[in-house]
Design a binder for these strands. Structure first.
Lengths: 383, 383
DNA sequence: CTGAAAGCGCTAACAG
DNA sequence: CTGTTAGCGCTTTCAG
């Protein structure tokens, strides 16, 4: 079996004791080699539950009860088991436990990795989810899969994981259907359309947009343009963050009696640069702009300055759903409402596990944090 | 059991049908709840190898041989098994397989998540590793653990995984010792000190620095400053990328008969800004600078411009080990030699699996890609 | 080339 | 409160 990494360029290998590889197309191990792998999982030589039982003078079942706290035991019995376990350096075997209990205690994080999903906060989601899982004695496997659900189905139907946490969900997400057909439980980061049947956690778009807009309104701005993501680029129709953010923005503008102004922009730095020209042409009276997602904002800001506008004196830029580090890269460093990635990852795991436990799981919406930078300031032409 | 996410700010919850959470301290499920989780791993109702054997008129062992290609079978037998599997929609149970074979076919990616490790290419490593693992029928669990090896030891000694891939390794890495003591096989992305006993893949620092420096030399620059990472910040003493990059740089300068000039800088955008002042003060004759890692470079560039220097007319900036997206965020967009994250992740998995198979694994060094931006240009004061 | 049989280490009824 | 007893589904000698 061979697989190719999604990297450009031709392979160029040299060997002189070590391999030196430039832009590799990676040819992986073949089947035969993989089959010959001999190392066992680390646990192999450890004492078993039977050894412990024997040493403690109880039955294996009793040890199991103690381990799982699944039946009440006398303190004395517990103490003897505890001692035996310590003496024998007992470590329970998670694989055997999984087989017998029919629960692997492994969950998967499925996240897309194609165009339009190049969010740098991806790392935060993974860290949040993995650490939450670890704290709950679960393991998190990572499945970077295509949007279409095919790869996901293949992985899920292997039956290793107890459940799947889906990232970057769309209204009509093929991955959801794929999992449903296989019968693997799932929870969502993001949501599907109106009839959300699965547990989910998501950004609180209303609150986040309000946080962003209020800051601008407080500074006196009245002509605030939203630079939203473009669903036509990267096939992101029905992508919640786009239309929910726009909805929140329009509501808010309505609430304040202001005219909404929306333009679309691809999710790259370069697209952000290009958007600057359109912004100035189409909305010459804009004094502030809210830019969706972390990549376009730096590009747009840079290009505004390049075209002779001063930020924030002429126009304030608010970066919506970015990270502190990315926001700091621009000059001036950007004011942003962050993506609560760590929180969503952790809360997503929590939702999934509650769901696996058969508990009702109310939706959770998390608001980003307003981090004030130097790209927003008082409206210059204030009446 | 309760755990706190590493997020700042106080919890602020509201419930009105959905939870609305701001800056949450996440309180996770308690033990009792986790114990009550009932969902089984997805496989539970599927046909077993016995069913297949019965349907095919062979023994379970034969089916196993067929599945694993572990003994030669007649074509006819294979065909019958194949048909039975299809009829019954057979899916082998990975947990049972793991128990019997003593191999879980799960490997872990351990990566640090503390200060100094906030690389945005982390996502690429994970994607590369996870997809390589999947291609080889392995699963990758993610363990974001502290540098000290304690958390890692706790996870590894559970015995779920067949091996561990360590990211961001240092010369004297406690995590390596921790794994050795437990007896869990490991491979490295990065390397330990001189006596590297474990298989590793790493950046080809010599080649990458040469790629960066050659570009600048070709443009006529002769006074090229290296802005290296500061090991005192984030406790990164013995961190290979720092001293290997510096070594490569010094060699190269020697080779060209140029005077090396090195300054240190923390791994944040803000530190990069601060470094600009020192650069101008300490090396007023510099016409080009090579900046280590993706965060400081944008800061340094911005501050140089802020101080009235023109990039690249007055000074060229080369961002070493960044990503295309981050490099594009600056104005001018930065020339960079990338971190080959995807490649290293995939090659690391390959190295680990070969190691598990008992095969010799020669080291692999991968060179980044030179992506030319607008931050480097011909030396202005060329004689 | 195929099969019988003995587990892998743990859990979970069911008894007592 | 504790023990007995079957497995969970697959792999892997060891025979034939």
């Amino acid at each position: 079996m061979t697989f190719w990494l999604p990297v450009s360029g031709e392979p160029d290998h040299q060997y002189d004791g070590v391999w030196r590889v430039t832009f590799p197309r990676v040819k992986a191990l073949d089947d035969a080699l993989v089959n010959r792998i001999t190392a066992a999982y680390a646990h192999r030589m450890a004492a078993t539950i039977r050894d412990v039982a024997r040493a403690a003078g109880v039955s294996p079942a009793t040890v199991s009860y103690y381990l799982n706290d699944t039946k009440p035991l006398t303190a004395e019995t517990g103490r003897r088991i505890e001692k035996a376990m310590a003496d024998l350096q007992f470590r329970r075997n998670p694989v055997a436990r999984a087989l017998a209990s029919r629960r692997s205690r492994i969950i998967a994080l499925a996240y897309p990795f194609g165009v339009g999903h190049e969010s740098y906060s991806a790392r935060q989601f993974i860290v949040g989810a993995a650490r939450a899982a670890a704290a709950l004695d679960y393991n998190l496997v990572v499945w970077p899969v295509e949007d279409d659900g095919l790869e996901l189905a293949k992985l899920a139907e292997q039956g290793l994981v107890d459940g799947v946490l889906l990232m970057d969900v769309r209204d009509d997400d093929p991955r959801v259907d794929a999992l449903a057909k296989i019968g693997v439980p799932a929870a969502l980061i993001g949501r599907t359309g109106d009839a959300v049947t699965l547990p989910y956690v998501d950004i609180d778009f209303d609150a986040s947009v309000r946080l962003a807009a209020d800051h601008l309104l407080d500074l006196g701005h009245r002509r605030i343009v939203l630079v939203n993501g473009d669903p036509d680029q990267g096939n992101l129709h029905g992508y919640g963050p786009y239309y929910r953010t726009e909805g929140a923005y329009r509501n808010l503008m309505g609430e304040w009696g202001l005219e909404p102004a929306v333009m679309l922009c691809g999710q790259t730095v370069v697209a952000g640069r290009a958007a600057a020209g359109r912004l100035l042409a189409d909305f010459p009276d804009a004094t502030a702009v809210i830019v969706m997602n972390e990549l376009p904002a730096p590009g747009l800001t840079a290009e505004l300055i390049h075209r002779g506008r001063s930020v924030p004196a002429d126009i304030s830029v608010m970066s919506l759903y970015s990270t502190v580090n990315v926001a700091a890269m621009s000059t001036p460093n950007l004011t942003t409402v962050t993506t609560p990635g760590t929180e969503l990852g952790a809360l997503g795991v929590e939702a999934l596990l509650k769901h696996l436990g058969g508990f009702p799981v109310p939706p959770v919406l998390v608001t980003g944090r307003l981090v004030i930078g130097a790209s927003t300031g008082p409206r210059a032409d204030a009446a």
